[in-house]
């Protein structure tokens, strides 16, 4: 029994941590610029694929990972540029970002085929915690995710730039009036969020494997998590990531793997029916 609990705790946390990196960025972009960035999954997979390709070409792992992150940042810039002219039309924002996400997915499909690729892990080996075997890589990625998310929180609440970001999120017009260059803030948030997603993608490819289809999957998860946590609430989406992680793992343990996604989606729909603004959201 204890073993089962440890297993649920650890595995749920790892899944939650990775999706937390994706969802927090998605949430941040929406909070600041009111853009539903459907291309968020593109950064997730592209960075992983580039890192994989470079490792295969013989470059070192860390160089490959840095290059992957660079690509994620570039995708952030592209999404910023694409959405700028249509920012005030919500339908168009959704359509343009979604189309871009699918474009990237198809390009990856043409380049790499539909099969999964994995990146060699930062650390090898297996640890045993309370009788449960856990790979070092999983523990490391949990630690990295927690560090990134904490750093993000500190950055937003404590630093000067972070406060500008928050101010823009609360009221972009007022922020503009007090002299904040909100375009710069938008761009910055877009790049930062894409970096987080790209990093998550690389961790994901080390523990699991990515294929082009995963981009849509990452988007759906981020999406579901952000709705669950409440649109625009950074803390809400981080909390919701872990909730989703635990729902997944508990379902796998007690109900069977086949139900995992169905139960997750159903729970989210159920929560939305009861509390349509999500767990931590505020009604607009």
């Amino acid at each position: 029994m204890i073993e089962t609990l440890i297993k649920i705790f650890l595995f749920g946390a790892v899944v939650g941590g990775i999706w937390g990196l994706v969802a927090s960025g998605f949430s941040l972009i929406f909070g600041v610029s009111r853009i539903l960035n459907f291309a968020h999954g593109a950064a997730f997979v592209s960075s992983a694929f580039l890192a994989y390709a470079l490792v295969n070409e013989g470059y070192s792992l860390y160089f490959a990972v840095s290059a992957g992150l660079m690509l994620a940042a570039v995708i952030g810039v592209v999404v910023y540029a694409l959405t700028k002219p249509v920012r005030d039309r919500e339908v168009m924002v959704i359509i343009v970002t979604l189309a871009f996400a699918l474009l990237v997915q198809q390009v990856l499909l043409v380049l790499f085929g539909d099969r999964g690729v994995s990146i060699e892990p930062f650390v090898e080996g297996v640890a045993e915690i309370g009788g449960v075997k856990v790979t070092h890589m999983r523990l490391l990625s949990l630690a990295l995710a927690v560090i990134c998310l904490t750093a993000l929180e500190v950055f937003i609440t404590k630093t000067n730039l972070g406060k500008k970001v928050m101010a823009t999120a609360q009221d972009s017009r007022a922020a503009m009036m007090v002299g904040i260059d909100i375009e710069k803030i938008f761009l910055f948030v877009m790049v930062l969020s894409s970096l987080l997603a790209g990093f998550a993608g690389i961790l994901y490819a080390q523990i699991f494997a990515v294929n082009p289809e995963v981009s849509l999957r990452a988007l759906i998860y981020a999406f579901a998590i952000v709705i669950l946590g409440g649109l625009g609430s950074l803390r809400g989406s981080i909390a919701a990531s872990f909730i989703v992680g635990y729902i997944l793992v508990i379902t796998i343990t007690f109900l069977g793997a086949r139900w995992s996604e169905f139960v997750m989606l159903l729970t989210i729909v159920a929560i939305l029916v009861v509390k349509p603004t999500g767990l931590f959201g505020v009604e607009e």
């Binding site: 919500e90 759906i220 729909v269 939305l272 607009e284």
Partner: peptide, 18 residues
């Protein structure tokens, strides 16, 4: 549809998956 804004878009996006 009681709610305004993005919620309708978000919920309907999940529906086909369910």
């Amino acid at each position: 549809l009681r709610l305004r804004g993005y919620y309708f878009a978000l919920v309907t996006a999940i529906l086909p998956l369910v």
